[in-house]
Design a protein around this nucleic acid. Structure first.
Lengths: 171, 171
DNA sequence: ACTGAAAGACACAGACT
DNA sequence: AGTCTGTGTCTTTCAGT
């Protein structure tokens, strides 16, 4: 059920420089870190029944292998004047490399856009936009988004309520 | 342009127990914490040209007033077998309190759903779902989502590429 | 791969400006 | 509202199992 022989970590992995698979302890550590990035190594150690050294080494390894991407601080949207969230769909007029690259560059430079995905369906991109209020969104829509070259259709969906928001991928 | 008199913090705020407005130093601290939740107070202090005490106090105050919501660790989706992301739109057959509450309870219990919003437009909810692969999504769609009572229409949009993803709200 | 100990860095509280 | 200083706790490394 939780057997971990000396070969446990590397047995599963694929090719040459493959990343060692995560074992039960690693996942326990990730679970704690996901909920609170500022938890101390000591606290983790006591909860997973290990001393600080292996916990420290495991965290470092997960940072180096990219399992742990970043430690971030989540801020209350409304309290930093970003209380309005809008989902925005964009299609481009042309689907060549140049148009796409140009669009991506423009999006990257817009701090209102907090997420952007390439999606299936009738639209090409989905954007998540965070702004202070409707006026700010109108300004963004008309004077920033629409100004990008080769923009085809635009469609906005407004977020009226947040039901659930989690960053917990590991359970 | 960056004047901060003794009344600076409280002058703007609204009612009685109102949260003091964030000043330039607070925003600088937030900027650093957003990028790296594990940054030390000392490091922040040196970057914002303050000693550790006021930085420590400011962080504590922002935690207490809810400006800082949580410190989280972001994990590589693919490396924890959650490499497929799907945006899923849901409409309910009935729009009474009971149906809504029941849906929300069901969604909350599903670990595949990492975000859920109440939205404007033809659908009622937008879900962001993270699963390992298409098989896992099919199973989720057919055996979990569709099983919720009063579910009307369902529409899935697949994320083919991540262009941008940030948690930086404060600039 | 883990434990335990030990050095250095840090957080946090106090006295003071 | 800030600096400086001290104490206790934490991170991080090293020797040993």
């Amino acid at each position: 059920m939780e057997k971990e022989g000396s070969a446990g970590k590397n047995a599963v992995a694929g090719g040459a420089g493959a990343i060692p698979a995560l074992d039960t302890k690693d996942l326990q550590i990730l679970r704690l870190l996901q909920e609170n990035a500022r938890i101390t190594v000591r606290e983790i150690a006591s909860q997973v029944h290990l001393s600080t050294t292996p916990v420290h080494e495991r965290i470092k390894r997960m940072e180096e292998t990219g399992v742990i991407r970043q430690y971030v601080t989540l801020v209350d949207h409304a309290k930093v004047k970003k209380g309005l969230m809008v989902i925005c769909y964009v299609s481009l007029k042309q689907h060549n490399k140049q148009s796409g690259a140009q669009f991506i560059r423009a999006i990257d430079a817009m701090e209102e856009v907090i997420e952007c995905y390439n999606i299936s369906g009738e639209f090409d991109f989905m954007l998540k936009v965070a702004v202070e209020n409707m006026d700010a969104y109108y300004h963004f829509h008309v004077h920033k988004l629409s100004e990008i070259e080769d923009i085809g259709h635009l469609q906005s969906v407004f977020v009226m309520g947040i039901i659930k928001q989690t960053h917990q991928l590991v359970y």
